[in-house]
């Protein structure tokens, strides 16, 4: 349509500023991470060599290029520490995502079944904790799970345990923290697909003699799979790189990859190895990221 085409040109001009911003503050930094991951650690400021210095001319730049090597990546592969922490991240993310589906699905399902006038309220109630600070929500759990905390006192009062259980600095505490923090990310996409679903399909299944249980597995669940997919990706990807929750709630004997990166950077001051860890983490996340990108584009742009 011609009016649309007239509109498109100024709209493209509008994109110039954010385009340049993202190129400078998103793309270029990635180039730097890649470059430094191929550099050597040095006791200097900045703590790596070679440093590209354009003022020294082309020859120096070429020499600097030749100094780049894959040594840091060889280190990642040869040292168990790194492989184990990648594996731990994947296991923690997969386990948490599974728990999130198990908890999130019934909640989203209940929301979708509410009378229409209550659904908006229920959705707001799920979103509001998402607005309150993430750090504060994790801290709230430290309050509850500490040695003389509320959780232990309830367990003691109910005579479920005879003495206080250590919850903090355990994987259980970490899983509670992760599930708590990411629950809205799982519920919302699930609810979005479940609420859109045509109830006549379920009525038809029932009329045809399916029990509610059977109708759920044959009709509802398959139709909700796009929502499950979106929820899984929305939780899995950021959990793999999670730092704050495992650092505050889990023990320190096995680290997730985000913690390893943090340690290399802040404690060991080894910028090249930290960069290599980041690049490897990114490679790990490329398949789910591509999938997420497709889903997201289909959802946002498919509504024309």
């Amino acid at each position: 349509m011609s009016t649309r085409r007239i509109f498109a040109r100024p709209a493209r001009y509008a994109a110039i500023a954010p385009y340049l911003w993202m190129a400078l503050f998103f793309l270029v930094p990635f180039g730097l991470v890649l470059k430094i991951s191929l550099s050597q650690t040095a006791i200097a400021q900045p703590p790596y060599t070679p440093v590209f210095d354009l003022s020294e001319g082309w020859q120096a730049l070429k020499a600097a290029f030749e100094e780049l090597s894959l040594d840091n990546f060889r280190l990642l592969l040869s040292d168990n520490l790194y492989i184990l922490s990648y594996l731990r991240s994947l296991v923690v993310a997969a386990t948490s995502t599974l728990i999130l589906i198990l908890i999130g699905y019934p909640i989203a399902y209940g929301m979708a079944r509410l009378p229409q006038r209550w659904q908006g309220l229920a959705m707001t109630l799920v979103i509001v904790p998402f607005w309150t600070s993430f750090l504060i929500r994790v801290y709230a759990w430290i309050n509850i799970l500490q040695h003389d905390g509320l959780f232990n006192r309830i367990l003691l009062a109910l005579h479920l345990v005879s003495e206080p259980v250590t919850w903090l600095s355990t994987d259980t505490a970490m899983y509670i923290g992760i599930v708590y923090s990411y629950l809205p990310f799982m519920i919302l996409p699930l609810y979005a697909t479940l609420a859109k679903m045509d109830r006549a399909l379920l009525e038809a299944a029932e009329d045809l003699g399916a029990s509610p249980w059977k109708a759920f597995w044959l009709v509802t669940f398959p139709l909700s799979l796009p929502g499950v997919g979106a929820g899984v990706l929305l939780c899995f990807i950021p959990i793999v790189g999670e730092f704050v929750i495992p650092d505050l709630l889990a023990g320190s004997n096995s680290l997730m990859i985000g913690q390893t990166l943090w340690l290399e950077f802040f404690t060991n001051k080894d910028w090249p190895v930290a960069s290599a860890v980041a690049i490897a983490l990114l490679l790990l996340l490329v398949p789910p990221l591509v999938l997420y990108d497709r889903l997201q584009r289909r959802q946002v742009e498919g509504r024309h």
Binding site: F26, P29, P238, G241, F243, W262, S275, A278
Partner: peptide
């Protein structure tokens, strides 16, 4: 779209290097 799900440690590290 990628920064929406990018681990914060990577975004933080890359910006600091810049």
């Amino acid at each position: 779209y990628s920064p929406l799900v990018m681990p914060e440690v990577i975004s933080g590290l890359s910006l600091l290097l810049l």
